[in-house]
């Protein structure tokens, strides 16, 4: 088992595992020939590739020059991967390329598309070169195909992974934004919660609130859940925990905006409401918070 893993994780020179067609040695010779062919025709082939990319209306977010520059770099990495049988450099390039093009809106199908195009361009050139000798063509293609597949895979997977990373980052950012801790007065924070609360968000919300209490030296916090549609036992317990943790930091929490449905849920599942200080709506909550802080709000006319 341990051996298996080792073999999978090692950056294998894929010709070692190739068992179809020619012998290992024969494959190596064929690959050398293939690499030499691709080097000789570098200019023509990458121009052809770039042209086909534009024709297929891929990478439309990029200019012609940019496409050509990237095509050149990928082409060279491609040939190098064929030659050395190692994929790290190509993988690294695929990652950095993805990093550059994802923000410009390049889609997964475009990246897969251009890699397949390159595969096609190269296969056609091999066909043209060896069409007189079918046996040789067959062997060359046998050597070329697994490598080309692996290369296409590496680039596409690199892109998808980078995309997933970006998406995760954005989700994180959205989550931060969706639970703003607002200071409305000295020592008074408001935390309006809108939407669905899952355990992960509940945890993040608590973390942010606790940090907010500390940095703003808050004494009172109003958590407004008017915008929360539903609440189950897990989330209700999270809310209770948030209230308790805030108290440990010396802050009083007032919960406002409990809908009739949520009130019913809380009572039904038997959440201990004794610890929760609740007020009907946000305005009432703020008024009570101000009283706790010793503020008194009076109309200007009445004050004079």
């Amino acid at each position: 088992m341990a051996k298996e893993t080792e073999r999978l994780e090692r950056p294998t020179a894929w010709h070692e595992t190739l068992d179809r067609g020619a012998s290992l040695e024969g494959t190596a010779v064929l690959l050398r020939e293939l690499v030499a062919h691709l080097r000789e025709n570098r200019t023509q082939l990458r121009e052809e590739w770039a042209r086909r990319i534009t024709e297929a209306k891929l990478l439309t977010a990029m200019s012609k020059d940019e496409i050509f520059a990237e095509a050149t770099a990928v082409y060279d990495q491609y040939v190098e991967a064929l030659e050395t049988g190692t994929f790290e450099a190509l993988q690294a390039y695929a990652r950095s390329l993805s990093e550059r093009i994802i923000p410009r809106g390049v889609e997964t199908h475009e990246v897969v598309g251009i890699v397949l195009l390159l595969r096609d361009v190269l296969a056609r050139s091999l066909f043209a070169k060896y069409q007189a000798d079918f046996t040789k063509l067959d062997r060359i293609l046998d050597a070329y195909e697994p490598a080309a597949n692996r290369i296409a895979n590496t680039v596409a997977v690199g892109f998808v992974q980078e995309r997933e990373r970006v998406i995760r980052q954005q989700q994180e950012a959205i989550r931060e934004l969706s639970t703003p801790v607002l200071q409305v007065r000295e020592r008074l924070l408001i935390l309006p919660i809108i939407g669905v609360i899952d355990p992960q968000r509940a945890r993040q919300l608590t973390e942010q609130l606790l940090r907010g209490i500390r940095t703003n030296r808050a004494k009172v916090v109003v958590i407004d859940i008017t915008g929360v549609a539903a609440m189950d036992a897990t989330v209700a317990n999270h809310l209770v925990q948030t209230v308790e943790a805030s108290r440990l930091l010396g802050a009083t929490v007032i919960v406002t905006g409990l809908s009739p449905e949520i009130a019913q849920t809380l009572v039904t599942i038997g959440v201990d409401l004794g610890k929760m200080n609740t007020v009907g709506d946000l305005q009432g909550g703020i008024e009570q918070a101000e009283r706790l802080l010793g503020y008194k709000v009076v109309p200007i006319g009445a004050a004079s």
Binding site: E207, K219, R247, L248, G250
Partner: peptide
């Protein structure tokens, strides 16, 4: 903050004890 977070997860609330920042 992180200590308070761990406390409530553990189920400790220091009920009846006054706390301040």
């Amino acid at each position: 903050p992180e200590v308070a977070f761990a406390m409530v997860q553990l189920g400790i609330t220091l009920e009846g004890v006054v706390t301040a920042l």
